[in-house]
Computed example of a mutant assay.
Amino acid sequence: MKAVRTHAYDTTPVLEEVPDARVQGPLDVVVRIGGAGLCRTDLHIIEGQWEPKTHVALPYTQGHENAGWVEAVGSAVSHVAVGDPVILHPLVTCGLCGPCRRGDDVHCQASAFPGIDADGGFAELIRTNARAVVKLDASLAPADVAALADAGLTAYHAAKKAARRLAPGDKAVVIGAGGLGHIGIQALRALTPAELIVVDRSPEALKLAGTLGAHHTVVGDGSQVEHVLDLTGGQGAEAVLDFVGEGGAVEDGVAMLRRAGDYHVIGYGGKLDVPTIDIISSELNFVGNLVGSYTDLVELMELAARGLVTLHTSRYPLDAFSQALEDLDAGRVRGRAILVP
């Protein structure tokens, strides 16, 4: 099969022939890729940022947002069959450890993360296990939803956490209306009655945010904190969801937060530097978000099937992956980039 392989850091991956992914155990599922999302994490992997955390052996195949059709199943798999359209939870989990037993499979103690620390979906086939496979509604095409497997799942996970504490009349700020943020806006609209304020430097991204349900849009032109405070009566928002996490977004986001507010960190790259006396005196809460659980993914697919969450994509054939990387790095991708074998 064809696969895009990362052979060394700070170099462009290579499209090459590798052995087909095959069933190796009774709970294995092999999926023929219909779409694989490409995101900034893939750029950071190529830059070597993830190597100290994953220690993955090179070469390997990236691609952690995957959907397609079941190609083969192990002898113990019964909930999907060959030919079924599916989306894959990004983790391969054991189901037996404490976190898995509690439904917190994101923190499985024996997990693998295809595309991050194991071979992923920038290929024609991928092997995962039965616990990762969610059957898609007939109305959903794999390439249309592939990036919901991680970007969408992460955004939904954060929105779901925020929604638990947001009531009618509350304000929620979304920083960044790009690949993750435009999904987060839709998830918040589906899950909470809060008034949504979206901040982004791009007028085009803000225009999209308005069509997706943002009540207010604010251009990040240097006066965004002042504008958000004006929209919140000078008090700040009950929740800030930061889908950027760098380039001044963290400092702005904290300044937009009201007393006893929740700051949800989703984007990364920067640093959180807040005096502890400010955290204590204002009772601020800082909430990390990695990715959602299997249950979160099932719920997100329900919203997608009902048309409440849609993904804006730019598609590239697998052999145009280098162009997709360039476009993503240059900020030319609106929504999510999808590789289609």
Score class of each variant (00 low, 15 high):
Ala249Ile: 11
Pro114Val: 01
Leu27Lys: 15
Gly335His: 08
Gln323Asp: 11
Leu212Asp: 05
Ala260Ser: 13
Gly288Arg: 04
Arg332Cys: 06
Val56Cys: 07
Gly68Gln: 10
Val23Glu: 05
Lys53Ile: 14
Glu246Ile: 14
Ile87His: 09
Ala146Ser: 15
Leu208Ala: 08
Gly35Phe: 11
Gly95Cys: 07
Ala81Cys: 07
Ala330Arg: 15
Val86Arg: 07
Arg201Leu: 14
Ala143Trp: 10
Glu283Ser: 08
Glu65Pro: 15
Val133Gly: 03
Phe122Asp: 04
Val31Gly: 06
Gln323Thr: 14
Val31Cys: 05
Gly236Glu: 00
Leu125Asn: 10
Thr128Ile: 06
Val145Asn: 07
Ala149Arg: 03
Gln24His: 14
Phe122Met: 07
Glu299Leu: 09
Asp296Leu: 04
Gly37Tyr: 08
Ala304Ile: 02
Val86Ile: 09
Ile279Gln: 03
Asp252Met: 14
Arg315Tyr: 06
Ser111Tyr: 11
Tyr263Arg: 05
Asp327Ala: 08
Trp69Ala: 13
Ser281Leu: 12
Pro52Tyr: 01
Ala305His: 08
Gln224Met: 13
Gly83Glu: 02
Val298Gln: 13
Leu166Gln: 02
Gly35Glu: 12
Leu140Thr: 10
Phe321Glu: 09
Arg332Val: 07
Arg306Ala: 15
Val106Pro: 01
Thr192His: 00
Val73Ile: 13
Pro90Glu: 04
His89Gly: 01
Phe243Trp: 12
Gly248His: 10
Gly34Ser: 13
Leu325His: 03
Val173Glu: 01
Ala36Asp: 14
Ala76Thr: 11
Thr128Met: 08
Glu124Val: 06
Lys207Ala: 15
Ala3Gly: 10
Pro317Val: 07
Arg332Gln: 15
Glu71Met: 10
Val80Met: 10
Val56Ser: 11
Arg101Gly: 03
Gly233Ile: 12
Cys97Tyr: 02
Asp104Glu: 12
Thr11Phe: 01
Lys161Trp: 00
Asp170His: 03
Tyr268Phe: 13
Ser202Cys: 01
Ala67Gly: 15
Asp20Gln: 11
Gln62Trp: 06
